[in-house]
Design a protein around this nucleic acid. Structure first.
Lengths: 347, 347
DNA sequence: CTGAAAGCGCTTACAG
DNA sequence: CTGAAAGCGCTTACAG
């Protein structure tokens, strides 16, 4: 292991003290221009870079954020992860990734804490909220991303899941659908619960109730099976709201290719998230768009604010979600709120 | 910021020296059973966990691996990332994620080095190989994942891209296709070049050459445009090999929905990677499967071997890639090597 | 086996 | 503004 160059090496070459080198690399420290010049020149010659680990030890700031994610299978999360990485980097932070496998949350928690992360983004829907609590108790700010857990010590950033679900109900009712069904995600996630609850409330506003319900657990294959079960009864649903796009795509494949139904002629399908695949020509999925960019920005801001000040209060930020009308849901006869998505191609 | 509990706190409570606490948490250190018991009990009471950052400073081992990725849009990479995270974790390492935006490789490199990572996995196809070189010069082992760069100081792990391309050529020729075209990825990536070169070699073995060529740059929309350009000429191709699945899916959408062609009746389509979407019922894409799991295992092994021993030689590991016959390529009249994929459903 | 001490590479009061 | 010194929380020879 080649010993790397340290501030002492630079100090020696520049003919100054080690403290001076350190100060030269601290933007706010008092250093003369001449001193900084000498130090930077020596540093450049030696290829010196401050050791972030040593700095962490003394400042108690690692500038590392732990990000916990459950699965990257649902394309929503890769998009989030990439956004988080770039946004954190812009603020001088880096991202330590934890892919949570279930059943070992305690061990995972311990590992996160050992690395002295400055904050945590919990984007795992399956992770017990107890972990968030433990971190918060250890004095580490936590922001829940795309999930809530009140009461609790952590802030959260979500889209308006209930509002989105409600809009879907309005759309489907306005389009004249008579038998409107729902496929849930994981039952113990706030996203699935809120979307369903808003959806049911929306149906109720039209004096309607849910025609059928199945559970897809946010899994591709389980969603396909759920659709099969739901559509094997007579009469079958004439519209279905699926708790996320990842499942909605599986549902569409099942309806069209396995059951021979036409979408939306025979059945309307609506998803949630607006993942990249939803816009693919084969799907052109009508869905509720999560404001992913803004959610990421707000998450990073919230986290940094809490890192910088212990007094920063916990907050639950709910951002508006927007209905994106593509081609898988019948449109109401009269114009409706929400704009038609004109991008993409259709045969 | 709540001061966290240190080994000194534990030592005080247990009535032993600080060194003893440290040794108790070092599996190989000489400690009596009684001592370890006392220490662990005190540690448990206080909720003590060794500070990984302090440990890094003294051992010069961070147990952090930097993973550089360019884009998570192509679903191949989320799968890889999740696999890497889990496999590294199994070996006691953690993953610091860098999403490389182009044009700032030097800055990125500096950041990676500051964090004293023990090793680097470069899974970014766009990242200049100069970065890999710089890291290697800094004494940090680098393994290139799904790309090669010889001559160079870094090991690499890839699928047999050329062999895969060659098999595709054989399949399409054997099926009797007359006008076989190719859509390239990014021109300066080893994956695209090797797949194309193997493909051309395979065609040549049948006395054939490539009927047409366009560039999709591994991008969904660009691939769609490339397909459009390639199929606007008369006569049009009757088969197309696309350098990866991510693009092949865009190509299929364009052929079927925009040009009204039937796959494989009018045109065969073959991809590369075998991403999850390739198996979706809407696509059922015939493709070349990368042995992702094995590639990940080998990458982690190679990296750890190089971390543990400076003498470990650089290696270029090439793993076999397997043709997966689904429904988008016409089959040859006589049985062919490679097995039919029977999973999934088809309408 | 156990403890006292040095030292990893930094930052930051504290004097000057 | 600059330097000498303390200290962040560990690991690991070195004595005993």
């Amino acid at each position: 292991m080649s010993r790397s160059v340290t501030s002492t090496d630079v100090a020696r070459l520049a003919g100054v003290s080690q403290s001076a080198v350190s100060r030269a690399f601290t933007p706010t420290a008092p250093v003369s221009a001449e001193m900084r010049r000498k130090v930077f020149e020596a540093a450049r010659k030696l290829g010196y870079r401050p050791n972030a680990i040593a700095r962490t030890l003394i400042t108690r700031r690692s500038r590392i954020i732990g990000v916990v994610i459950s699965s990257l299978e649902n394309q929503f999360y890769p998009v989030v992860l990439e956004g988080l990485s770039k946004q954190l980097r812009r603020h001088g932070y880096h991202l330590l990734l934890f892919c949570a496998e279930t059943q070992e949350t305690d061990e995972l928690l311990a590992e996160i804490l050992q690395y002295q992360v400055d904050g945590i983004v919990m984007a795992s829907s399956t992770m017990s909220s107890g972990v968030a609590r433990s971190c918060a108790e250890a004095g580490i700010p936590v922001v829940l991303f795309n999930r809530t857990a009140h009461p609790g010590p952590s802030s959260s950033v979500t889209a308006d899941n209930a509002g989105g679900g409600r809009e879907v109900a309005h759309l489907l009712c306005a389009a004249g659908h008579q038998r409107i069904a729902f496929i849930a995600g994981l039952e113990d996630t706030s996203t699935s619960r809120e979307r369903e609850q808003g959806f049911l409330a929306g149906l109720a506003e039209h004096g309607r109730s849910c025609f059928g319900r199945a559970v897809g657990n946010y899994d591709h294959d389980e969603a396909a099976r759920a659709a099969l079960a739901l559509f094997s009864r007579t009469p079958r649903p004439d519209a279905i709201f699926v708790a996320n796009d990842h499942m909605a795509i599986a549902v569409m494949d099942t309806l069209r290719l396995q059951l021979g139904l036409r979408v939306p002629a025979n059945v309307s399908v609506v998803g949630f998230d607006d993942v990249p695949q939803a816009a693919w020509a084969s799907y052109q999925l009508t869905t509720v768009r999560q404001p992913t960019e803004r959610m990421i920005d707000v998450t990073v801001e919230l986290l940094i604010r809490q890192i910088d000040s212990e007094q920063a209060p916990r907050e639950d930020i709910v951002l508006p979600a927007e209905l994106v009308l593509r081609s898988t849901a019948r449109l109401p006869p009269s114009p409706l709120i929400g704009q038609r998505d004109t991008g993409g191609m259709r045969g």
